[in-house]
């Protein structure tokens, strides 16, 4: 698995698009510093971008890379290698190259700005952790969807709808349910619903860490009230890690039964 990961990473790091993606974060983060000149505010702005853009780009990129590397996959399948190693390696290659781009693009300006000596270091690391883990989850979901759908257009479409669902629609449904059942004790439902959406989990975790109650919303507040800040952060971290396992297992399971 490591070898395939190595080659797929090497292939991707040299691709222009992944380079532009890293440069985009670099310019955006530097721009934020120039405009706001404030570490804490920059982290909040980056959080908003991270929560929407990282899953979207990971979805698009994961889907495109999977369909583009189909013939390469056939070459690998003809080698004496088990399927889980091939697809595990490809998944790690795509998700980690996106993660590394994010890490470098956002990280370098912060390091130059002197994040290391400031009090914001843990908030910054939380942001980086979430950027990387969202890259993993959504590129994994996209590859899984790609494996399950032979038709490129259909696979790509489903992947985008999944992103849209988690990034936008899910919140809307959750909010509607909270309003509709506001007379009932819905805290547990609300916590459960947030754990089922990796983007909500990321948002809650960053906001808990930053301790901005104004931006936290109902679920964040419930999370904080229910678990306290530290337990809340631990639970959201564990749930996010668990979320990376879901697409990974899905990829392994679907690849075992697929014809190429």
């Amino acid at each position: 698995m490591f070898r395939i990961f190595q080659y797929s990473l090497k292939d991707l790091i040299r691709s222009r698009w992944i380079f532009y993606y890293g440069v985009f974060y670099l310019l955006f983060t530097t721009g934020l510093f120039i405009l706001s000149n404030d570490l804490s505010k920059s982290i909040i702005s980056l959080m908003n971008i991270t929560l929407v853009l990282v899953p979207l780009i990971a979805t698009i990129f994961g889907s495109m890379y999977f369909y583009q590397s189909r013939e390469f996959v056939e070459l690998l399948l003809a080698q004496p290698l088990p399927r889980q190693r091939i697809f595990g390696g490809l998944f790690l290659g795509v998700s980690l190259s996106l993660g590394i781009c994010y890490l470098l693009g956002v990280g370098i300006p912060f390091v130059f700005y002197g994040i290391a000596g400031s009090g914001e270091i843990w908030n910054f690391l939380t942001l980086l952790f979430n950027g990387v883990i969202l890259s993993l989850i959504f590129s994994g979901l996209a590859i899984w969807i790609g494996l399950a759908n032979e038709n490129k257009l259909k696979g790509f479409g489903i992947a985008i709808v999944v992103w849209l669902f988690f990034a936008v629609i899910y919140d809307g449904i959750q909010l509607l349910l909270l309003v509709a059942f506001s007379e009932y004790p819905i805290e547990k439902f609300s916590i459960g619903a947030s754990i089922l959406n990796p983007i909500s989990l990321s948002r809650i975790q960053i906001l808990l860490k930053l301790d901005i109650s104004a931006l936290m919303g109902f679920t964040g507040a419930v999370f904080k009230k229910f678990f306290g800040t530290n337990t809340g952060i631990i639970i959201s971290t564990l749930s996010l890690i668990f979320w990376t396992i879901i697409p990974f297992m899905g990829i392994i399971f679907t690849s075992r039964k697929k014809d190429f």
Binding site: K10, D11, S15, E71, F72, A78, R83
Partner: peptide, 19 residues
């Protein structure tokens, strides 16, 4: 999968990692 050690395969279309 280990039986494929004994097989060399040449597919119809040769496409590789581009970079």
């Amino acid at each position: 999968y280990d039986y494929r050690e004994d097989i060399a395969f040449l597919p119809q279309i040769a496409r590789f990692p581009e970079n």
